[in-house]
Design a protein around this nucleic acid. Sequence first.
DNA 1: ATGAAAGCGCTAACAA
DNA 2: TTGTTAGCGCTTTCAT
Lengths: 365, 365
Amino acid sequence: MGRQSGTDADGQRRSTVTDVARRAGVSTATVSRVLNRNYPVAAATRERVEKAIQELGYVVNAHARALAGVSGRTVGIIVNDVVDPFYAYIARGVEREASRGGRLCLVCCTQGDPQRELAFVELMHERRADAVIVVGGSVADRAYTDELARRATELDADGSKLVLCGRPPLGERVPTASVEYDNEGGAFALTDHLLTQGHERVLYLGGPPGLSTTRDRLAGHRRALELRGAEPDSALEQPGAFSRAFGARRMAEVLRQGIRFTAVFAANDIVAAGAAQALEEAGVRVPQDVSLVGYDDVPVAQEMRPRLTTVHVPLEEMGRQAVRVALRDEDEDPWREPATGVVRLGTHIVVRDSVAPRGTHRGRM
Amino acid sequence: MGRQSGTDADGQRRSTVTDVARRAGVSTATVSRVLNRNYPVAAATRERVEKAIQELGYVVNAHARALAGVSGRTVGIIVNDVVDPFYAYIARGVEREASRGGRLCLVCCTQGDPQRELAFVELMHERRADAVIVVGGSVADRAYTDELARRATELDADGSKLVLCGRPPLGERVPTASVEYDNEGGAFALTDHLLTQGHERVLYLGGPPGLSTTRDRLAGHRRALELRGAEPDSALEQPGAFSRAFGARRMAEVLRQGIRFTAVFAANDIVAAGAAQALEEAGVRVPQDVSLVGYDDVPVAQEMRPRLTTVHVPLEEMGRQAVRVALRDEDEDPWREPATGVVRLGTHIVVRDSVAPRGTHRGRM
DNA sequence: ATGAAAGCGCTAACAA
DNA sequence: TTGTTAGCGCTTTCAT
């Protein structure tokens, strides 16, 4: 026998389909049918049932419904931090697309801890989320990757899907969906833009060293350098973090050390904002003395003065696509071509006011 | 008979406690006991069960568990927009506190539409969320308020709680919890600060006119004006929206119209950022020509140049308190004093660089 | 320490 | 068009 009384402090049992049925003088099946409006019910009956529902303040129990075989209509999204605009915009896309499909969104924040990420994937699986979306770069740790792959497989076995949003695949054999963006290409274009303007010594600033996002951006940057025959200099690569504080601090240090450069490639716009501050405090003018670029094209890029040249990443669209790619088998009509499970979105450089041609620079070189 | 096959495309039934029990040679009760580690189980038995769980890739079904009477361990939060830092910081607090208690967070965005808000409250009730937190100012529409009150009552009847976070109560009789902050007081302090610096004509800029948040801030502003005997001037009250775009646009218009003022009280920091931009473009210097203040103390306030004087609102803490106040009956030990169900947090002015004494101003008056 | 079995609230197959 | 009823997967009481 179940253990709970089914009554609350007031002795008021919360109402169930059975209560509604009794009050309306119909069967539970009929109540279910008016609830789900997926089956013909006589108008008069329907009204009686709806009246009973009103009077009892009845609210259907989604757990019971899910247990009876109906989708829980939930998608899960796992991000580093909801406050970071990179994640926030993706989360917004996920929420909007989920909402459009009548789904609710479970949101978790890992604060950068892979173990928390794995734990959250599990919790969302327990809740039988229709899809679990993990967002943003990942570390290349083997044990972690294997474990995530295992969970992806288990999710898949339960008819759900792990979606990789902005991070590399888990391997050919692992059943996942994924949304990618051209990270390397954007970085290439950005550095190429700088090179074209005559800059040869470009400082690469920020981004956690182990992260796939950093790897890809740095790879694009290096490829452009190489292509133009600019000589690489490890002193010009200063990864670290994706924070404003890091950008400001490391920029100041680099200035103090007297490392020579005429342009700064910040790993993202937030880092660029920090760098801009340090530059300003050191009396270095952007773009007259030093050119500065960022990445992501989040609002701060337009709000900075000078406005920041950066790479546009379609963050909100990535979020939307993440839920689409995971759910199209469930929602769309079956005559559509079978989904590939991978969508790749483009990036493009947005030229604003923070880059000037090398020729106009003074000092620092 | 249930209608679904219980098998997926591969004919692989997903495993259940029964499968685990069979494989481990124990009963489902025993499996449940090792799952919940709330009851003594022989070490050897436990190991066999855990092995079976591993081998089958078994993941407990939270719906079944919830239906059997265990809390779903979910809290719901409803915000305007996850990207807006005001909401994002509160959401972060909610997520962290929920997570601390082993709960997951359902997040919905209303995009400012009260009807969507009501619909989301219902959906979260269906999912039997332990608490449903509605965040931010509300409109004073009676039909809407009544409906929300009704839903609060129904939630309460199911042992859950509607939490009002940063908005006025729904009435004495309506069972809700709430987290308030001293909105009026912060506005009072801010305008008083301006007045003390010799400003007499203060432009109030932004904030949706119908919103409780705007009402409270405006009320504090007016009270300070009155107290200091500054004469009110309706031309100096320019509500509208909480966006950067509004701040920039309306600021430019006001400048064009030649309305006289020496200080601007922006309804929040985002509006202040927009106003700052318009001011800059018009060649009006902050704070030399015009003083500027904001509200909320979100990061942009520190990032602006000059750094923005504003009112600090403990956003993340509000989020944390929202889940605490709703859940302390469930989680805390019963000997604690009974919760009041209302927590009120203070605000304080943060003086930075965007205000100068009236004496140093030139022009505009 | 373990097992048997009822029941949580709902949906849908089947019967009428 | 409506009713009857099995069963979704789990927890817990009660018995052993």
